[in-house]
Amino acid sequence: MTKSTKTGHLYGYARVSTSDQDLAIQEEALRAAGCTVVRSEKKTGTTTKGRDALQTLIDFAHEGDTIVVTRIDRLARSIADLAAIVRTLEAQGIALRATEQPVDTATAAGRAFLQMLGVFAEFETAIRRERQMEGIARAKAEGVYKGRKPSIDVARVREMMAAGAGATEIARSLGIGRASVYRLMQKKAA
Rank of each mutant, 00 (worst) to 15 (best):
Q92M: 07
V38S: 01
K188S: 13
R87H: 12
G143H: 11
D81S: 08
M1V: 12
A76S: 13
M161V: 14
G8D: 08
Q186C: 00
A106N: 13
D20C: 01
M1H: 13
F113G: 02
T48H: 04
I152E: 10
E90L: 11
E169F: 01
R74F: 08
E100K: 14
A98V: 04
L75P: 08
D73C: 03
T107W: 05
V157D: 05
F123S: 11
I136M: 13
L57Y: 13
P102C: 03
L23F: 10
T47D: 04
A14G: 09
A95K: 07
A162T: 11
G45P: 04
R129S: 14
A33M: 04
I79E: 06
F120M: 14
I72Y: 13
A95M: 01
A32P: 00
M160L: 15
I72N: 03
G164L: 04
A83D: 11
I94F: 07
T88H: 10
G64Q: 08
D59T: 12
A126F: 05
G177P: 01
Q101G: 11
P102Q: 08
A32E: 14
S78E: 04
A53M: 09
R128F: 07
A14P: 05
T18A: 07
T66V: 08
S40D: 00
F113V: 12
R172C: 07
A139P: 12
S151M: 13
